[in-house]
């Protein structure tokens, strides 16, 4: 059977993707300028589409990101604070609540997309601690994938089915499934450098704007 690789798998090794994600994580989390944060989130969502296996998967991913963003925004608007922009059915819609909502929504959707870009299924970090971190991210990825798969009203049964489906048999050994060792191409290294400069560049710029 012929194995077809997704675009990121051709140019980047899983370890390099992990290092790249880990390096840009602080530049995203500590970004205080909302506009930059929104832009970074959109970029992460766009890049995460390259990791999707089919066009249906891509569409699902986009719809999920959009609705989770909207849901968090609306949910946070229920706690009004700051300047009142307008009232909707006697409920004050405030600037502070919108800002908080967008801030939290970008963190949630942005981090989910970033983890999709960063954590390849065949990631294997060196050393015992690295192995443990790889395993945690592997299971996190599995949890994200299977969480919508089981549709039963009994929440306990649903959690049980999810856990049963991702728990490996005891004879699996100490490591999570690893396909093969891939190397990062020259184009891949160049793209990673551009990405690092970009994210840290706008982070430094945001520090000047905040002043």
């Amino acid at each position: 059977m012929q194995i077809t690789h997704k675009l990121p798998e051709i140019h980047f090794s899983p370890v390099m993707l992990f290092i790249h994600g880990f390096c840009i994580l602080p530049a995203f989390i500590f970004q205080k300028v909302l506009l930059f944060r929104v832009f970074q989130t959109i970029l992460f969502i766009f890049l995460s589409l390259f990791h999707a296996s089919s066009s249906v998967d891509k569409r699902k991913q986009l719809v999920f990101s959009f609705f989770s963003f909207l849901f968090i925004l609306v949910f946070n608007m229920l706690t009004p604070h700051g300047e009142v922009l307008f009232t909707l059915f006697n409920f004050p819609v405030t600037l502070g609540a919108i800002n908080t909502g967008i801030f939290k929504a970008t963190v949630f959707t942005g981090l989910l997309a970033l983890s999709k870009i960063t954590i390849a299924k065949n990631l294997s970090l060196p050393g015992p601690a690295g192995k443990m971190v790889s395993k945690v991210f592997y299971y996190f990825g599995e949890l994200k994938e299977v969480q919508g798969k089981y549709k039963t009203k009994d929440i306990i049964k649903r959690i049980d089915l999810i856990l049963l489906s991702i728990t490996p048999p005891p004879d699996t050994g100490d490591s999570v499934p690893i396909e093969q060792k891939l190397k990062t191409s020259r184009a891949g290294i160049l793209l990673i450098c551009i990405s690092l400069f970009f994210h840290w560049g706008i982070f430094i710029l945001s520090l000047y704007i905040a002043k």
Binding site: S68, F71, I72, F75, N76, L78, T79, T100, K104, A105, V107, F108, L111, L112, M132, K135, V136, F137, Y138, Y139, F140, E142, L143, K144, Q147, L163, I166, T167, P168, P170, T172, G173, D174
Partner: peptide
């Protein structure tokens, strides 16, 4: 048994991350 135990630790830690991310969105 030790390797299975480390898999369970990693799985429970992943559940912690998942639930933390879920809780983060609640105002």
């Amino acid at each position: 048994s030790i390797s299975f135990q480390s898999n369970i630790v990693a799985l429970l830690a992943a559940c912690c991350i998942f639930l933390s991310a879920f809780e983060y969105i609640i105002p």
